[in-house]
Amino acid sequence: MKIIRLVIVSLALCAVHGSAATFAATSPATPCVAKDTQNLTPTTRAPDWYVPGVTGPCQVDKSATPIVTPTTAYWVYFSAFSPSDAFRTVPYNADYSARDCEVNFRTCGQYIISYAWAFWYSCSGRGLSGYDVARNIRYWADRARANGPNWRVYTWTEAGGYPYGCAFSLYAVS
C-alpha cells in the first residue's frame, strides 16, 4: 500500500514539474523569449504574454552585444523576397524604432520602410496603434537576441511593393 502511495505521489510531482516547465516558456508568471529558429510565422501583434522591457530573451548571446549603440538608424533594404520590398535591422536598432513608434506613429516608419506615411497608413488601416506596433517590434527584437548574433528583425511589403504588411519576423544573415 505504501509503495502504491509513493508511486502516486511521485507521479503527481512529476506532472506538476512538467506543467511548470511548459508554463515557464509561455506564461506571464515566468516569461522569457525562448530561442526558436524554426517557427518564424510573421505577426502583426506580439503574443499576449509578452511585456516590452520586462519579458526578455531567456538567454542572450553575449557576442550579439553591439559595439556602438546608435540612435535610430535606417533599416536596410534587401531583395531576398523580391518582388516584395523587404527591410531588416539589428535588434537594438529595432528597439529604437519601437520607441519611435510609441512616440510618433506617423513618423516612425521613415526609418523602417523609408516611407513614414505608408507605414502609418497600412498599420493603422489594420487597426494597430503605435503601441501595438512597438510591442510587436520589441517582441521580435527579443526573439532575434534569443536566437543569436546573426539574426535580424525584418518586415516587408506585398508583391509589387504595395501595400506594406505591418508584420515582422526574423531573418538569419550568413
Binding site: P83, Y121, S122, G125, R126, G127, E158, A159, G160, Y162, P163
Partner: peptide, 10 residues
C-alpha cells in the same frame, strides 16, 4: 503581374 485587393478600411 497584376495584384489587387484592399487593406482593411482603406
Amino acid at each position: 503581374r497584376v495584384g489587387f485587393g484592399r487593406v482593411d478600411r482603406r
